[in-house]
């Protein structure tokens, strides 16, 4: 068996390329297989990704962030993965509870949902949420009762927004983890939420994590976008259409 391309034999130029990219570049091989080190790292990253999907956001964080906790129609993780439709809907009793316990008709309804990475919520929300709330307050926007949703999909914001008659809705949700990072968060926003709103009408900021868009900076960026959404009464492609130059004919 021969080992080729050991890392200490790298050309400087290969190092520079590898350093610019989170992919597993120039890791070498042992015969026709990955090196032991590479295989172990791969398995470890895969384990982290699986944990991100399977674990739950801690009650302590939900409480610390002052979130009102509810659950979708989904009853456990397996059902969550198998039935995306159930992750977008809430039970009639839950809707009733929301109307009783949460502020009605807010300008901005804020939702945190575990999605496919509870790790993303644990890692990013503590820095993102406070600057977001600061900023929305500075802009004079009326923010309703922030909600935490267990087993939530992006479009659960349509159901919650509709039930609470929110002017706009924002969901901070864990992204499907990969092998480069398992802690990436997305922010989806919609103006005039109602069930069945197409994805094209939603605005998104993705790749929020320490190695991407830092959560604290993302919070300030979301403030700007929500302010623009409320100002122009639009979201998604409707919001950016004016900025785009489509070739006609």
């Amino acid at each position: 068996m021969t080992t080729t391309n050991p890392p200490d034999d790298h050309d400087d130029r290969l190092d520079r390329i590898a350093d610019r990219n989170p992919s597993r570049l120039g890791v070498g091989r042992a015969g026709s297989r990955p090196r032991t080190q590479t295989l172990l790292e791969f398995r470890s990253d895969h384990g982290i990704a699986r944990d991100a999907v399977q674990s739950h956001v801690s009650d302590a964080l939900v409480e610390e962030m002052g979130l009102f906790a509810i659950q979708t129609l989904v009853e456990d993780k397996d059902a969550y993965l198998a039935r995306p439709d159930k992750g977008r809907e809430i039970a009639a009793e839950t809707a009733e509870l929301l109307r009783e316990e949460c502020q009605q008709s807010p300008q901005v309804q804020l939702i945190v949902a575990d999605g496919l990475s509870s790790t993303a919520i644990e890692k990013n929300i503590p820095d993102l949420l406070p600057i977001l709330l600061d900023g929305l307050d500075q802009r004079g926007l009326d923010v309703g009762t922030p909600i935490f949703v267990t087993y939530g999909r992006v479009d659960v914001m349509d159901a919650i927004g509709e039930e609470l008659d929110a002017e706009s809705c924002l969901v901070l949700i864990g992204e499907r983890p990969g092998l480069a990072t398992a802690e990436s968060l997305s922010a989806y926003m919609v103006y005039g939420p109602e069930r069945g709103t197409p994805t094209a009408k939603k605005t998104v900021i993705s790749n929020i994590h320490a190695g991407g868009l830092p959560p604290v900076e993302a919070g300030a960026e979301i403030v700007d976008l929500i302010a623009e959404m409320c100002d122009k009464q639009a979201s998604g492609l409707d919001l950016t259409a004016a900025d785009r130059e489509f070739a006609k004919g």
């Binding site: 500075q138 604290v216 900076e217």
Partner: peptide, 13 residues
């Protein structure tokens, strides 16, 4: 570091 918008918002307040 990538933090201008956040720092700006905090400073503006």
């Amino acid at each position: 570091q990538n933090c201008a918008k956040a720092l700006g918002q905090l400073l503006r307040a």
